[in-house]
Write a protein that binds this DNA or RNA. Sequence first.
DNA 1: CCCACACGCGAGAGCGCTCTCACCTCCCCC
DNA 2: GGGGGAGGTGAGAGCGCTCTCGCGTGTGGG
Lengths: 341, 341
Amino acid sequence: MTETAPRPTLEAVAARAGVSRATVSRVVNGGDGVREPLVERVRRAVEELGYVPNQAARSLVTRRHDAVAVVIAEPETRVFADPFFALQLRGISKELTAHDNQLVLLLTEGRDDHARVARYLAGGHVDGALVFSLHLDDPLPGLIRGAGIPTVFGGRPGWHDGDEGVVFVDSDNRGGAREAVRHLAGLGRTRIAHITGPLDQTSAADRLQGFRDVRGDADPRLVVESDFTPGGGERAMRELLARRPDVDAVFAANDLAASGALRVLREQGRRVPEDVAVVGFDDMLPVAEGTDPQLTTVRQDIEEMGRIMARLLLRRLDPSGTDDPPAGVVLPTTLVRRASA
Amino acid sequence: MTETAPRPTLEAVAARAGVSRATVSRVVNGGDGVREPLVERVRRAVEELGYVPNQAARSLVTRRHDAVAVVIAEPETRVFADPFFALQLRGISKELTAHDNQLVLLLTEGRDDHARVARYLAGGHVDGALVFSLHLDDPLPGLIRGAGIPTVFGGRPGWHDGDEGVVFVDSDNRGGAREAVRHLAGLGRTRIAHITGPLDQTSAADRLQGFRDVRGDADPRLVVESDFTPGGGERAMRELLARRPDVDAVFAANDLAASGALRVLREQGRRVPEDVAVVGFDDMLPVAEGTDPQLTTVRQDIEEMGRIMARLLLRRLDPSGTDDPPAGVVLPTTLVRRASA
DNA sequence: CCCACACGCGAGAGCGCTCTCACCTCCCCC
DNA sequence: GGGGGAGGTGAGAGCGCTCTCGCGTGTGGG
């Protein structure tokens, strides 16, 4: 079983095809500058021997790995409660695969891991990194920049010193929030509340900002800080109903919180959307379509976001490319109207 | 930016410490057989120079990569609708990290990718593979076995020729289903229905089998085939109510389907659990806790499953270990009682 | 006091590949 | 018909590391 079959080397292929190693190498790497009959002979030898290049040997000399690290910080919280990162990974994977790059996944758990990740990235195992760091005070972005490896961030990172050149991809959290709130206003609602996410995350902060853009003059009691979870949404909704029993609309910072709010509203006998209209954020399908009534929410194209991150990184990695990547890309969101508002 | 700082080599460290390359190598790899003062000198030189071993060079000679591939087949369907794989990945990642192994993620999309994955695995980039393949007729397991690389499967794979030696880790789907159905029976329910998952997946087939173990004599009309989605759960529930309006309990093959069933029951004015008791499977938190009433369901420890898969693989990879890993590990499930049954 | 042996350390080969450079052919043009 | 060039091919060095082997030093026993 552990019988490692002696894999054929370039040398072996060369011998079989009756050419030099250099020629085989040329053929294997695209075949420019080799005459057709030889190409054919080499191809056949490769085929017959089942030759596969040794990546380690190749990397040793080229100093390329055709591999990209994806760093996901602090998965304990939000990450694994929803398909967000899975979708993102899928987008990233597709793009990387299309360009023959591998995806090395680095999940970090707490501060201890930071050093490990930094060391790995600095260790030259990968050509670049895609980093998801949700928290404003996360030291990881700084560490990674120190590693001196091309990096693209997922989500707007918190601002640190010397962050001007940071490349990131984010959804238009602020614009999406504005659209959600305007939709509620357009329904004639006048007492629109906002259940926020954890405000140490840029996405939550940006959504709150969007809410304020439209309802800057709102009663401060209509804004309740929460945590992106159903339980948190429930608590926030109860608080809201206690503070302002006349509330007639809620914009929750994500679908999970909205689902909690919905449950409290029903429990308290408020009809949705007749008495209170509810809008979520994310369009996390199993949740948004699973609530009763189904949730009106703001959709972000997560998979596309992943794809663009990968594309941006690959562009920076490509030595041939004209090197002027945008610093940040903000993807549009769309309002998905279902039954709750 | 692309200014690749010339990374220090073993040679450089050796020169600085005034020893030979061999000695530095020994120290870096554990330091056995090197006297303390020298170890100290080398350590300092490493520190000062910020030396990090070149993994490519090392792999070239050791033929080890300290990297494991995680292959997830057909992510289009179930995979990305729920946190299942994310949790699994987390478990895997933790275990691999603890043993200084890297995780290379391979997501496949349709048949074309199979060849790519097989080539990659056969290409000797990784030491082993963890493979998730849900479908009975998936050709991937066969291809991978052909690649001759140590592999552990997640979930019981469908049976192919020569599968005796397959190592896999799975939840006790059958036992969990039995427990769910017995719980319903213990509640005094006599007309217990089952909404299945897609029966070409072993997990769904095993859950059905568990149902049959307890209710082998049930009216066949009480079993409706479905697809693990909320929409599918809705359709199945409607069908069920049409066939047997007197149904008083439903065991849905997963939480998503259960959430759909719940919605139909409410819509049709059946009280849960009074009129109809409902049990799900998975304990997918955002769903199970997000339904109304909250879902009684069968929990599987997904993260642990990932961890065990990784552990099993690492054990097979470890040349020093006494080599007798179990062929299959089946993890217990537990019934989580909430409001729906 | 000398020999045997173990242990610590260095020299050097070689892992499989790419890439430069020199050579050799063949063709075109004067 | 000969010289120059372009393009195709091979030889060989070297990427950074590990590992075997042999030598030198220190220790214990006869």
